[in-house]
Design a protein around this nucleic acid. Structure first.
Length: 299
DNA sequence: GTGTTTGTTATCAA
DNA sequence: CTTGATAACAAACA
């Protein structure tokens, strides 16, 4: 599922390729995917172009040239942004197929054939012939146009610091934890506390920090919080470097493919042997999520 | 038919 | 008011 590193990878790719290209055609195939009225949405974007693409947590923020509105795109669990330009393709987000199944497939095949397909919820055509598809199997993702003031309000209200920001540090997190009785995993999943972590990176960070996911927040010593923060930053940086875990682009010929999957130490390794000790990786449900951990390495 | 997958919000309870 | 826990959303797969 796209978390911060996957969304950041998409952002960087799109930023280098589709800025300032006029939108010559767009269509919304699933009205439910829009948070605005369709007519307003189409009218607001047609013949416009994006001047920059930013990100806050897992939310993509497209700035529009000469316009007050911003286009927000959230991929939620199964959203993808697929960009085609001159035969080269860039895909981002969650694949609807498992990794094993997609390995031998081309991009188009992995998406189930030609685009748009039955999961395409919106599409953009640009002046140079390039195309952007928003696919979302489960329809949790959305596209939304908002004014600057509304954008500022919703970010202030819903988003804590970026994990790689200087304002996300040991003192900050320790302060957030000291009066909380929730488990540490649910705290780290809370976007208001730190914006961008999801199930995979929380499990990985807690494992590397040696902290059990069901530890009560206020039971963590400062030293443990310090180690946790350092590991979150390290893992998020590494995951961005390797273009994310669920992200797959198919430009292997250009040598730009890469995946963080090979660095995963606990996520998806239920009942396999721990990479640090001889114990088996445990899995249980916590905070409503599949949660992976090692009983020996994490205290 | 059942359980599982998870980002975010709504809802309810304490 | 705050906090925390859980259901709901949706679709596909094992």
């Amino acid at each position: 599922m796209p978390e911060l590193p996957e969304v950041e990878t998409i952002r960087l790719d799109l930023n280098s390729d589709l800025l300032n290209k006029k939108i010559t055609f767009l269509d919304v195939l699933s009205v439910k995917t829009l948070k605005n009225g369709k007519a307003f949405f189409v009218k607001s974007l047609l013949n416009k172009s994006f001047s920059e693409i930013n990100r806050r947590g897992k939310l993509l923020i497209f700035k529009i040239n000469n316009d007050d509105n911003y286009l927000l795109i959230h991929l939620k669990m199964t959203g993808q942004l697929v960009y085609f330009n001159n035969g080269k393709s860039i895909a981002g987000g969650h694949s609807i197929f498992s990794e094993k199944k997609t390995k031998k497939l081309s991009l188009v095949e992995s998406l189930g054939g030609e685009l748009p397909n039955k999961h395409t919820r919106a599409l953009f055509y640009f002046q140079d012939g390039s195309q952007l598809f928003f696919n979302d199997l489960r329809k949790f993702g959305y596209l939304r146009l908002v004014k600057k003031s509304a954008l500022d309000d919703l970010i202030k209200k819903n988003y804590g610091p970026e994990p790689l920001g200087d304002d996300f540090n040991s003192n900050y997190l320790f302060d957030k934890l000291k009066n909380r009785k929730r488990n540490i995993k649910s705290i780290l999943l809370d976007q208001k506390i730190v914006a961008g972590l999801g199930n995979i990176y929380v499990d990985e960070s807690l494992f590397s920090a040696g902290v059990l996911p069901d530890r009560i927040a206020n039971s963590l010593e400062f030293e443990e919080v310090d180690v946790l923060v350092k590991n979150i930053k390290r893992i998020i940086k590494l995951a961005i470097k390797y273009r994310g875990t669920t992200f797959r682009d198919y430009r292997d010929a250009q040598g730009r493919s890469g995946s963080f999957s090979k660095f995963l130490k606990v996520y998806g390794r239920e009942s396999e042997k721990c990479l640090n000790c001889e114990a088996k990786i445990e899995k249980k449900k916590l905070a409503g999520r599949g949660t992976h951990f090692c009983l020996i390495c994490q205290k």
